[in-house]
């Protein structure tokens, strides 16, 4: 799945520890504000929209659409960086994996999948829905 790529390890902080604990269990957690109701990315304690500290983790759908992407041709193996808009609203930087990079299009529906790092963390990445279900 990772084609021998070596990943830079994520650096969990007090604000994101739970998120990374979630991905290790195959759960995609999204931070949402109880005060204004909006979800945000990256996860924060203080809501970026209304400054409330009444934020909480909710189970995300792990689904979204490709807002834009780039194939990193400089690296071997190539990989696909993408900005994916989650169904919960926010857009996040990620990768598209298990796909034919040439066939990817903006707007494609994608679903979360997890790729293990050397230290055993699980990076949330996305894969095209059509291929994932095949």
């Amino acid at each position: 799945m990772s084609d021998g790529r070596i990943f830079i390890e994520p650096v969990p902080t007090a604000e994101t520890e739970a998120f990374w604990a979630g991905t290790a269990e195959g759960r995609f957690l999204v931070r949402r504000c109880r005060s204004c109701g909006k979800a945000h990315w990256y996860p924060r304690t203080i809501c970026p929209f209304c400054s409330s500290d009444e934020t909480e983790w909710v189970e995300g759908t792990g689904e979204g659409t490709i807002y834009s992407f780039s194939i990193m041709r400089r690296a071997k193996p190539n990989y696909v960086m993408a900005y994916v808009t989650l169904t919960e609203g926010p857009t996040m930087m990620t990768n598209i994996v298990d796909c034919d990079p040439e066939s990817l299009r903006i707007g494609d529906a994608v679903r979360v999948t997890y790729v293990k790092t050397a230290e055993g963390r699980a990076l949330p990445m996305f894969t095209p829905k059509s291929e994932a279900s095949a």
């Binding site: 990943f7 990193m72 960086m81 990076l123």
Partner: peptide, 19 residues
């Protein structure tokens, strides 16, 4: 964004240009 290999301004502007 570094874990996803997004570690340069070039990546940012490439994604921006595609959109």
């Amino acid at each position: 964004h570094a874990p996803w290999g997004f570690t340069s301004q070039g990546a940012l502007y490439a994604i921006m240009l595609r959109r």
